[in-house]
Write a protein that binds this DNA or RNA. Sequence first.
DNA 1: AGCCAGGCCCTCC
DNA 2: GGAGGGCCTGGC
Length: 300
Amino acid sequence: MLIPFQQLLDLPATLESGQAFRWKRLDDSSSGGDGWYEGVIFNNVVRLRHDAEGIEFRCGPDEESAMAPLVADYLRLSDDLDAIYRSINVDEKIGSAIDRFRGLRLIRQEPWECLVSFICSANSNIRRISTNVEDISKSFGRPIALDGRERHAFPSPQELAEAGEGPLRELGLGFRAKYVAPVARMVADGEVDLFALREASYNDALEALIALPGVGDKVANCVMLFSLEKMEAFPVDVWVDRALRDWYLDRLNANGADASGKVTKKGMRPWAQGYFEAYAGYANQYLFHDRRLQGRATTS
DNA sequence: AGCCAGGCCCTCC
DNA sequence: GGAGGGCCTGGC
């Protein structure tokens, strides 16, 4: 099925920029063509390809006609990128990052999977996070298939709560298992309503997320940005930290420093949110992607 | 071999 | 309140 779409979109950058962890680029032999990505969203195996006419996709077990609006929503196709660029393009640094990755979109993930994924991200790396999320799905999620290729749905909070910490450790989550297990229990019991946080203010959502074990400011901002509609969220990880210090140190020293005059992660986020304003999260993703591809060698 | 990877939490000061 | 160390594990 085709979702007609003629506007800016860089699908590979969008799916491979570390926002979500279950997308795989398929090779020719298994997909019968170039440019296909396969992931699992909304309890479906979904394959996507972008061409001049729009987004071609297939899915199972649900009907393509039912999945089409969810895919469009997931890819944030209604975001007006040109308007967002006008909003965040406040200097030549971020401008150059925008030029390099025009069409990179934030995605609107399912909050529960997003939360678990970023709890798993602590002191880890993208490849390992991907392995963790895939292993969690294989062990505790329902099998689903498309054209004979089997994947697994991401398990529900109940399913993960029943699994408990021990089996999660056995999957190689390490110390993150002791956070994922209780958070699953809390979400399953309704102590936190993740979808309700979409309607909450940024500050209320942040407070609710940080109350969860294994969730600090960085993880909470990732969850808010990638799944809870908080476009002003601004997660400061090591890459964004490096990018900001490299490009904005003078401004940070003037406005993002703490009482003792030092620039800290804690001070960087509010500064950046004030500097890039309503769509700071988009600026964040471009800074992150730019710096991550650039690698560590050039930082000093 | 030792260090680091897209942090968080706890302890001490 | 904030600086410092520990934490699972895999990869270089």
